[in-house]
Design a protein around this nucleic acid. Structure first.
Lengths: 254, 254
DNA sequence: ACTTGACCTTGACGCAACGTCAAGGTGTAT
DNA sequence: ATACACCTTGACGTTGCGTCAAGGTCAAGT
């Protein structure tokens, strides 16, 4: 089946202007031009447009999309698998915002206290995630990790060194957590070290620290299974354990 | 606590440039200016910025956001409730895309057939949803439904009359489904009428119809509980029933 | 007091991704 | 031939900043 700009635009839900623009920039060329000059698109273009729309949804710039889909080595199936992963990640990021708004509602109702930095939970993560979507895989493969890390660091207004320390500390939290969980005791030395490391990690993105906010975040980790999953990859029950460790940590440092 | 542009920008994950721009357009004015001309923000501005970021996340233009948050009647708590609703809707819309990519992967693997129009499921819904976020509540309240419906119709490249018919038919499907489900028989006259109405509804957005695609969509309705919920609001089990009705309908019209 | 580096200001240019409009050609049904 | 929907190219304009320049301010260290 063949499509002119309006048919294809209707099919996909984009404007004819966008299709002409995509032609102009070399992102999506029509299969051919009719004798009267009309753009005629075919099946391969339909499939390619689908890919383009997924990439666009994930926040990539058109020039980037162009470089990806027009690469001779482009693999449509593999790309689809990646879209899926990234859409799931985007969904999780959206979940962060939903939880944020729910917490803010709760705080507004006087049921809890919310620190200023908590009010922006999710938005900053979105920065890094969006940056990762845009530059992550392709650029890492091509230029190595530094370019992306620099960009992520910039997003969070950190030096590259600081960002590296940030990500290393995150890994250390996970590693220490894995060990601590084996003790089965959230107030054990290892568990308290984990909580302290976690606190240090928070220091990178929080302008100020409070035990309440720390505890609030820990509660969030277990309040929703989607976030518990991040820590439970270390060990089932690790998110709960970390919450308890933080509870002990914040109570002890009162 | 008070913040200068960089502190507030770091807190919220936005650039100093954005904050200055927001000041410039009157969206977010600082609490005061220091003797040296520095912008100084306080607690009310922090809360307001959070609201702005939620609206921005939901796709509203800054001018629109400005009109909303600077309205003397603006109610922060009510706004937060609305953010929550809309974020959940956005999440559902994202789920559509995830299911689409999963179906495309399946089709690529030869496990199923996928029509061209199915490849863009979710993207077109995104158009209407985004439009609704931008213009829905406030404009409907202010000017009535027609302005938004016109805009939605334009999004889907329909006349206003066609869009009205489209939305009315959608309601009719739900109404007929409610009745049909009471028969308990997916091949009953009522159930088959429902499936026929559903097919007509699809005719508004699909350039071509196929039984396979129809069946595929019906499977989607029950494959994921998040979408089943849309039909199950009629009656628990209605999504399943509709799927079965469509199965009978497409088998019978073979 | 002076220096240094981080942070602040205003002003201005430029960009991505189109939306909109104008002028004129094409296809199809009546 | 007419009418209407759709096509083309060309061009201007918009939104929301990113980036840069020039110069002022703040705070800690010497």
């Amino acid at each position: 089946m063949e499509y002119t700009v309006q048919k294809l635009g209707n099919l996909a839900g984009i404007s004819t202007r966008a299709l002409r623009y995509y032609d102009e920039i070399g992102l999506l060329k029509p299969a051919r031009k009719s004798s009267s000059g009309y753009r005629i698109y075919g099946q391969p273009e339909v499939d390619k447009l689908q890919q383009i729309l997924f990439y666009r949804e994930l926040g990539l710039e058109l020039e980037q999309i162009k470089n990806i889909v027009n690469n001779p080595g482009f693999n449509g199936s593999r790309a689809l698998e990646e879209h899926r992963e990234k859409l799931l990640a985007k969904r999780m990021q959206l979940d962060l915002l939903i939880i944020n708004v729910e917490k803010t509602i709760s705080a507004k109702g006087g049921e809890s206290i919310m620190a200023d930095n908590e009010k922006f939970e999710g938005f900053k993560q979105k920065l890094v995630d969006d940056n990762e979507q845009q530059y992550g895989r392709e650029i890492r493969d091509k230029y190595g990790d530094d370019v992306v890390n620099q960009s992520n660091a910039k997003m969070l207004n950190m030096s590259e060194e600081k960002y590296q320390a940030f990500t290393l500390l995150e890994q250390e939290v996970l590693d220490r957590l894995a060990e601590a969980v084996k003790t089965g005791d959230p107030s054990s030395e290892l568990a308290q070290q984990t909580a302290e490391l976690h606190r240090q990690w928070l220091g990178f993105t929080w302008p100020s620290y409070s035990k309440e906010a720390h505890m609030g975040l820990a509660e969030m980790y277990v309040a929703d299974e989607r976030f518990a999953a991040y820590y439970d990859k270390v060990q089932p029950g690790a998110a709960q354990f970390l919450r308890d460790a933080i509870a002990a940590y914040t109570a002890q440092n009162q």
